[in-house]
């Protein structure tokens, strides 16, 4: 069977959870086995609704509302052993990545992260992954009876939701962690970058932190996350958490709009998974245009407000 970690945040399924469940269900179908999702802690929607993405069953573990990597990995590896999992599917969220290595070691499983496609074979398990910060595509195989697969968020999609209900089973588990989580600071209303379907990003071409209001307005119209280039986070115009690129956050949105970013190789490495890239730059020689689908040569301070207005008109 295929075990899927169905991550929640604030009692709701994360968007990436539906991708992971769909992926696990497709793996199960291809092997003629069963997809079982695991939900930990309080969850407002009925856990049975994961059946809409192909889960045959959902095991709801009560006993923890706070992510702790050891505690969660211990619970999942115990379930994987009990149920005889051949794959354990996680999404590459912050928590998924925190847990992956621990879980693989505990479950004596091989681990393939950055997965960008369904397996091409199940004996041995062979799957495509991204490597060299999206500069390479690797075919990787696993030699273990059970393999942990960590998906790139946004890379695979959820597929259409069906109307099936999964079977549900509640269990009480004693979660014992090794660290003590304290206060969490999550900006409300902000879209986490790895999950954002649209991202608006700006660089040094904005000339200073005071000019970000127009970037945020454009992002708001598109319901997009906001991001920035490395130099901008290094000089402190924007927080590190917005830095996308090789050593920052890797993103795979449907739409990436880059404003005043020249397109250094390190930046491209983090954003080249974007489906559609729009580059706005006043320098027609900016290397980013070579990696873009659509380009506008123009001054950011002139183009951004007019693009925001044009999008507003279209979306209304």
């Amino acid at each position: 069977m295929v075990l899927i970690f169905a991550e929640t945040w604030n009692g709701q399924f994360k968007k990436s959870t539906f991708e992971a469940v769909r992926y696990g269900a497709e793996c199960a179908k291809a092997q003629g086995s069963q997809a079982i999702a695991v939900v930990v802690g309080s969850c407002e929607p009925l856990v049975e609704t994961l059946g809409a993405y192909g889960a045959a069953k959902v095991i709801h573990l009560k006993g923890s509302d706070r992510f702790e990597p050891h505690a969660y990995a211990t619970a999942l590896s115990a379930l994987a052993a009990e149920l005889g999992a051949t794959q354990i599917v996680l999404n590459g969220t912050a928590n998924g990545k925190s847990m992956a290595g621990l879980l693989a070691a505990m479950a004596q499983a091989g681990c393939i992260s950055n997965v960008t496609a369904l397996p091409s074979s199940f004996s041995p398990l062979t799957v495509q992954r991204s490597a060299f910060s999206s500069k390479g595509i690797e075919q990787c195989s696993s030699q273990t009876a059970c393999t942990v697969l960590v998906l790139v968020p946004n890379a695979l999609g959820t597929g259409p939701a069906g109307s099936d209900q999964a079977a549900a089973e509640d269990r009480n588990v004693a979660f014992v962690g090794k660290t003590t989580p304290g206060a969490a600071h999550v900006a409300s209303g902000k879209i986490p970058l790895p999950e954002a379907e649209r991202v608006v990003s700006a660089g040094r071409g904005m000339k200073g932190p005071d000019h970000w209001g127009m970037v945020e307005e454009l992002a708001a119209v598109l319901n997009a996350g906001t991001a920035c280039s490395k130099p901008v986070s290094d000089i402190g115009w924007r927080p590190h958490s917005e830095h996308v690129g090789q050593t920052g956050i890797q993103i795979n949105p449907q739409l990436y709009i880059a404003i005043g970013i020249s397109g250094a190789i390190q930046h491209l490495a983090g954003v080249s998974g974007s489906k559609t890239i729009v580059v706005i730059n006043n320098d027609p020689e900016a290397p980013f245009f070579k990696a873009a689908d659509y380009g506008v040569v123009g001054d950011a301070f002139d183009v951004i407000p007019r693009l925001t207005a044009a999008l507003k008109a279209h979306l209304n």
């Binding site: 091989g110 390479g136 595509i137 696993s142 030699q143 080249s272 873009a292 380009g295 506008v296 044009a310």
Partner: peptide
């Protein structure tokens, strides 16, 4: 526990479509 079978470079992007800044 795992092994890399092969590596390839991603397919190159098609040429950029430039759009006039006056016609957003």
């Amino acid at each position: 526990t795992t092994s890399a079978l092969s590596f390839a470079k991603p397919a190159p992007k098609a040429a950029v479509q430039l759009i006039d800044a006056s016609n957003l």
